[in-house]
Design a protein around this nucleic acid. Structure first.
Length: 222
DNA sequence: CGCCAGGGCCTCA
DNA sequence: TGAGGCCATGGC
């Protein structure tokens, strides 16, 4: 048995990448100016539209708060106020500080020397960093070869018929990483391409008539 | 107006 | 371990 269905999908993970890359071109992610800013954005974008995150990061930048020590010395209420545009601002203020506490205690430089699995466990132990946020950080801040599973990836792959969609996070990540066995540069582009495609076409209400994958998609056939 | 947006934690079976 | 409630703003 493969992925819960008795019919072989018309496409595989590598082909999806080729189609998306051929259509959308290189994405050049993550949209940030430094690894630390990537980490902040990874937390701030949790269940939140990126344009709202940009405003919050802009607030932090203007206040000179793009470092762990600067954020840690900021009063909770003031920090939360700057995060207001990104939503869940009280929760996210706490989560940013939790991340900064880890960075500060471990040493920013030292985190870059950690093996990927060690670093992932450290990140996951930070309250407010779950599997997706940890992998966003590993891939886009630390340039480690991990496949990020987010709501967009689940939606796209399940519509294509490549996964059922209710697999656990780690199961899906292993499936993608063993299927692709790729470099950080490829995983970087792949995730960014999925986001581009999910925003433009494979939306909550999909625009299947505009989709380059529709002829190979289980969802579009129904 | 309701739905959605690059989740994760806590609680309670 | 899994479902449900909660966190909150802004765009469409």
């Amino acid at each position: 048995m493969t992925h819960g269905g008795n019919v072989q999908p018309d496409i595989d993970f590598a082909a999806v990448y080729r189609f998306l890359y051929g259509h959308y071109g290189p994405q050049g992610w993550w949209p940030a100016d430094s690894p630390f800013e990537v980490m902040l954005g990874a937390i701030l974008t949790q269940n939140t539209a990126w344009r709202n995150v940009e405003r919050a990061i802009q607030n932090l930048s203007q206040a000179g708060l793009l470092s762990a020590t600067a954020i840690l010395t900021q009063p909770d209420a003031d920090l939360a106020d700057m995060l207001r545009p990104s939503g869940y601002f009280n929760v996210k203020a706490r989560r940013l500080k939790n991340l900064c506490r880890f960075i500060h205690q471990t040493g920013y430089r030292e985190t870059f020397a950690m093996p990927t699995e060690t670093l992932r466990q450290h990140l996951l132990s930070v309250n407010g960093i779950g599997p997706e946020t940890a992998d966003d950080i590993l891939l886009y801040a630390y340039d480690r070869p991990v496949f990020v599973i987010d709501a967009y990836a689940r939606r796209l792959f399940s519509r294509l018929g490549l996964v059922s969609g209710n697999e656990g996070y780690e199961a899906l990540r292993r499936l993608l990483e063993t299927s692709l066995d790729a470099t950080a540069a490829i995983y970087n582009e792949y995730h960014a391409l999925i986001v581009a495609h999910a925003k433009a076409v494979c939306r909550s209400k999909p625009l299947c008539e505009a989709c380059i994958l529709c002829s190979r998609c289980e969802y579009a056939k129904k």
